[in-house]
Amino acid sequence: MKPPPFAYHAPTQLDEALALLERHGDDAKVLAGGQSLMPLLNFRLSYPSALIDINRVAELSYIRQENGQVRIGALTRQRTIEFSELVRHQLPLLYEATTLVGHLPIRTRGTIGGSLAHADPAAEYPTVALVLDAELVLQGPSEQRSVSAEEFFVSYLTTALALNEIVTEIRFSPAPPTSGWAFEEVARRHGDFALVGVASVIDADGEQCRTARLAAAGVGPTPVRLRAAEDILMQQGVTEQSIQHAAAQAAELVEPDSDIHASADFRRHLTQVLTRRAIQRALERGQEQGA
């Protein structure tokens, strides 16, 4: 089908975009890469009276290092992130996850801010933001606030973003250089949304585990931080046995639904298998970093 009619605005300044959003209220939609919103419009599942196209707001597109963080403008394309040397070195997990987001022609247009604001629980970026303790900068007409990824994801396709706010920046703190990382997922076809995905960032020294961070995608209404599984690794150290333990615990922590793609049981099983793989892969990479 074709999109329903809407008023179209293409501001070039963030201020202008915010004023338009304020003026049009909850009838308006921000249009970023369009890789989630355009299908909804084409299928008439969404009827915004106005579209505020932020693609010409150049100030929202950048990747830079500041205060020990890597800061990424919300409009930065997934493709730009994929080919960024800075991301590859400082945020290798974000790089790895990016290669799993749809296909290259999708990443040409799709943005990091759009993926986070859309908040599909099976998407890679929300899970990466959660596991890396990222902060999102939300800009309203008069105020700016920063929220953690944990606070940002509220429910299925629902975030802490107010109707008059735009995500402007995502702030990542790189993991210590001795850390390893992994994004492990199972999807039906290459480029499809994952049935389940697990992200890990682990900083270990031999069997001693300094920090372990784990999060899962596709297993509930939001991405899930697997804290009790992290605790097992941090308290028991990383051994064959504690890894099995942590993976079993991860499967206990999630409450997946059944849908046409997979049953809840299968998703729970995948959570266990993928958690184990994500821990092992992170440890291998951590050793390579240390070597």
Partner: peptide, 16 residues
């Protein structure tokens, strides 16, 4: 190809 990069022309508006 849009500015040299492959993309879906069904997910873009002509005005864009």
């Amino acid at each position: 190809l849009i500015n040299g990069e492959a993309a879906r022309s069904c997910l873009m508006l002509a005005v864009q």
